[in-house]
């Protein structure tokens, strides 16, 4: 459960988040909105890369904004990035385990966690294989494995399916759907692929120009007039 209230971010004259308030309860939640709506900025605030000028974020009872950014990952805020972040010279095992060796988990339970995460995302490869030898879809799965290894509490997926062909998006959505159950984490999914969002998320929030314009059950939200207007511009176009 994560509660965001009155979150405002300002970059000079640009206000990517303007008094955003939203609550994500559990499971996999969608976050959609047109380009420039503030979705990635919101993720960056959660990760600690961007400091908001005002607002509060309470995640599982803790004040997230008070936490140093690198500690948030160890505490359980995990994310993937829009652009791929493959560290080519590391092996899959090393890359997924990176976060673990920063925390106190050691020895065989660490091994078990890392292999468990690789298993969980259905990566059927040798964990010792170097990341540089993998294809695009596999690299994406490594990113997801990296986000779920250990004890994640909040998994932020920033357009995980961008550029993937349909079958692979299908596989990925299965994995995403399974995260809350298996890993016990709250997942927030940002994507422009509405079929992916509606297949993964029970609830969805919609951002437009840094404001929350709708939230609720995904199918209702997607039919919401304001949402359509935000995406398509005017009512006339929709009609």
């Amino acid at each position: 459960m994560i509660e965001v209230s009155d979150l405002t971010v300002r970059f000079g004259g640009v206000i990517p988040l303007d008094g955003m308030s939203v609550t994500f309860e559990r499971g996999t939640c969608g976050l959609i909105g047109p380009n420039g709506a503030g979705k990635t900025t919101f993720f960056n605030v959660l990760s600690g890369f961007v400091k908001p000028v005002s607002g509060q974020i309470t995640a599982f009872g803790e004040d997230l904004l008070k936490m140093a950014h690198y500690r948030r990952a160890r505490w359980g805020v995990r994310r993937t990035f829009q652009t791929e972040q493959a560290i080519e010279e590391l092996s899959v095992y090393e890359k997924v385990g990176l976060i673990h060796e920063q925390s106190k988990v050691t020895g065989s339970s660490r091994r078990e966690d890392v292999l468990g995460a690789i298993d969980f995302v259905k990566l059927d490869i040798d964990p010792n294989a170097k990341v540089r030898t993998l294809g695009a879809a596999q690299r994406r799965l490594v990113e997801v494995a990296r986000a779920v290894v250990g004890k994640p509490r909040l998994v932020l997926l920033d357009e995980p399916a961008a550029g993937l062909p349909e079958e692979e998006t299908e596989l990925l959505s299965e994995v995403i759907r399974a995260i809350p159950e298996h890993m016990g984490a709250l997942v927030i999914l940002v994507d422009h692929d509405m079929s992916l969002v509606s297949s993964c998320c029970e609830v969805t929030a919609v951002l437009d120009f840094g404001r929350l314009i709708a939230s609720g059950p995904t199918d209702e939200v997607l039919r919401d007039e304001r949402v359509m207007r935000a995406y398509l511009g005017t009512e006339e176009v929709m009609a």
């Binding site: 990760s47 600690g48 890369f49 950014h69 690198y70 500690r71 948030r72 990952a73 160890r74 805020v77 995990r78 994310r79 990035f81 972040q85 493959a86 560290i87 990176l98 976060i99 920063q102 925390s103 990296r146």
Partner: peptide
Amino acid sequence: QSESAALAGGI
């Protein structure tokens, strides 16, 4: 590779 990705990895 990327400083922000490293931070997101708890480094």
